[in-house]
Design a protein around this nucleic acid. Structure first.
Lengths: 208, 208
DNA sequence: CGGTACGTAACAAGCGTTCGGTATGTAAGG
DNA sequence: CCTTACATACCGAACGCTTGTTACGTACCG
């Protein structure tokens, strides 16, 4: 076959797709060169042509995961403030099969990441980035009066990420108990609660 | 050596300890018979005397994980209501090295669980049980007026579990950013927010 | 021809598992 | 009491298989 221009990149795309399938089915613990190769009907030797070692393929898989997460279809960001935060959180939840697969692969990657210092700090960086993506909108929400004046946006961002990722894990293991509407209204309840909360340092409480 | 009474159980305890060490270090993805055997200075053949197959050893590891989680030292349950919920949530957080190891192993197990239907439904059951352990105290809190009258305890329990487990994951990957006091006050903020929130179904909101 | 893009086949290493073999102890029988 | 028999606990080595990796051969292109 001819080494047509861009052929190499196209082939790498095929590899990516096979890696994705293998990961969605068996997770990182079951990611094997032969599984990927046979999933795309080629030999393992061919794989080594594009990824010289398995570490390279794992790194590619993680890049792919990050890329597909970044490029996933997102709902519109309606206005500033809490409504935007809501949209961001809903975009994380496993509401469609694609979202579910992506979240499964993320959770599966944590086993690898916890055992490897480099991967662990990568994951820590991703969390830091995610929080700082949400934080400005929490600040805006506070400016709009949607949050108490004393609210700490960074900490609220960490809390929102925690809530939504903990919900992801529960929903992955028990999809029947966490259908779309339950997940969505749980996020809505969470946002409503932080918007009604008192400030942190002994500020006057409105209820109770 | 004599097959003294209880010797077999004592040996199984040794195996458990070695399994625990191996898991804390490398996670389930790196759990290998030879690693366990050499960690306790014995041969792999000896392991097969106590666990006929690796599946059995993995099952034992999961049992051990559940047992050590159930038997971990817990803080006193102060009074009824939200204070009890607070104590339960704090008992989950990775605040001590032991808690951290246990949580790491739990998170690591999710890779395995997501790829195996049986393990996945086990995990779903554990979540269900955890939620129903927390729920009665949320009901009590509602009765005490610590929560809005319209609050749904089951959903609040799911939210609390989500929040705390999402916090666990972030803290495991970035312990420097989530020291004990940050984790504790995040839980406190969360509890304060749900206690101040309005009820779910169009009940009158106090702020905004 | 030379170089790229593979397939085929083999490699060493590591895996879970199996199989004798060797102590050591308990139980039985004269 | 001594001996024989048998079960237990364990080791060491090997088995067969899968893993990641490498080497070599071939087809096709410019």
């Amino acid at each position: 076959m001819p080494p047509a221009p861009g052929d190499r990149d196209a082939r790498r795309e095929d590899v990516s797709e096979a890696v994705w399938l293998a990961l969605a089915e068996k997770g990182f613990g079951g990611l094997t060169l032969r599984a990927v190769a046979s999933a795309m009907g080629v030999s393992t030797g061919m794989l080594m042509h594009y990824f010289p070692t398995k570490r390279a393929l794992i790194a590619h898989a993680l890049d792919l995961l990050e890329k597909r997460t970044a490029e996933r279809p997102r709902r519109e960001r309606p206005a500033e403030g809490l409504a935007t935060v809501r949209a961001m959180l809903l975009d994380i939840l496993p509401l469609t099969p694609d979202d579910t697969a992506r979240n499964r692969i993320w959770v599966s990657s944590w086993d690898l990441a916890l055992a490897d210092d480099g991967l662990a700090s990568d994951q820590a960086g991703r969390y830091t980035r995610l929080r700082s993506t949400i934080r400005p909108h929490l600040e805006a929400a506070r400016g709009l009066g949607e949050l108490p004046a004393g609210a700490d946006p960074e900490r609220l961002a960490a809390g929102a990420v925690a809530f939504v990722h903990g919900l992801v894990v529960q929903a992955l293991f028990d999809p029947g108990r966490f259908p779309e509407d339950v997940q969505v209204s749980m996020v809505d309840d969470f946002l409503a609660s932080i918007s009604a909360a008192r400030g942190p340092a002994g500020a006057p409480r409105t209820t109770l």
